[in-house]
Design a protein around this nucleic acid. Structure first.
Length: 257
DNA sequence: TCCCATGTTGCTAA
DNA sequence: GTTAGCAACATGGG
């Protein structure tokens, strides 16, 4: 599923295509998405992102929030084709935007034009002191802490493993046990990895595709995720897989302490 | 057939 | 209060 870099990729591709354009009509294919208010005739004023959530600001003051969850995808189509698992279609003058979602976990809902979220977004430079402060009483594994959307917005299972490898930190360490220097490493590495993943238009491990159905390229730069039994590119030791809070976690026992 | 899956929420129990 | 564990959501791929 899309994490921050994948959602950011969609936002960047979507802006030139729909910002300033009017939604002509809407077709709800999957009733599980629930009731959507009338949107026809509204113009999309902006496309924003916070963490893994995409938000459209509309000309009537409403905000529409997308949570793609595990398998939600957005595709821009100008021809007549319809992708598999289409759940929702926005008709614009120049084409259609389709929400495709095999597992049907994605949500679309109106939200209030909220003030800035108090949670730092992973693409912004993280403040190591603030990270340390919010982890001060958290004994859960630092990997789970990084994936807690209330701590940092946007980091999911793939990038949590990658960031901790880059920072040289054992993912099972209690969050409260990291030193200030280690939080500085986390802050620096996190911004660098997420930015590089955005540049690469995300990670296509299995079936992530961007707005134009193109694959991302960051899977070629992964250091640990999905590499159980392979060798660490830094020290040649074997990459291990462990389960933390029910999620696959990959790390190098030599590079990460 | 079984196991796995890039997410989130809510419950239970320690 | 915190955390782990589990189920649920629902489907497809290996």
């Amino acid at each position: 599923m899309p994490e921050l870099p994948e959602v950011e990729t969609l936002c960047r591709q979507l802006r030139p295509v729909i910002v300033g354009r009017e939604i002509q009509s809407l077709r709800v294919i999957d009733r599980k998405l629930g009731h959507l208010p009338p949107l026809a005739g509204r113009e999309v004023r902006s496309v924003e992102r916070h963490g893994k959530r995409m938000v459209w600001m509309l000309s009537d003051g409403q905000c529409l929030a997308f949570q793609l969850r595990m398998t939600g995808r957005l595709f821009w189509l100008e021809g007549g084709e319809t992708p598999p698992h289409a759940r929702l279609v926005f008709f614009f003058p120049s084409g259609r935007l389709v929400l495709s979602d095999p597992r049907r976990f994605a949500t679309v809902a109106l939200c209030s034009p909220s003030a800035a979220s108090p949670v730092a977004d992973g693409l912004e430079p993280l403040d190591p002191k603030a990270l340390a402060a919010s982890a001060r009483r958290r004994r859960l594994p630092v990997k789970s802490f990084l994936m807690d959307q209330r701590a940092v917005a946007g980091i999911g299972n793939i990038y949590a493993s990658e960031i901790l490898h880059g920072a040289g930190i054992d993912p099972t360490r209690p969050a409260c046990s990291l030193t200030p220097a280690q939080w500085r490493r986390v802050a620096t590495v996190s911004a660098r990895i997420l930015a590089k993943a955005v540049e690469a238009r995300g990670t296509s491990i299995s079936d992530w595709r961007d707005l134009f159905a193109g694959p991302g390229e960051y899977q070629h730069q992964l250091r640990v995720y999905g590499r159980k039994g392979e060798r660490c590119r830094a020290c040649r030791c074997e990459i291990l897989r462990v389960v933390i809070a029910g999620r696959s976690t990959f790390y190098c026992p030599t590079c990460q302490k």
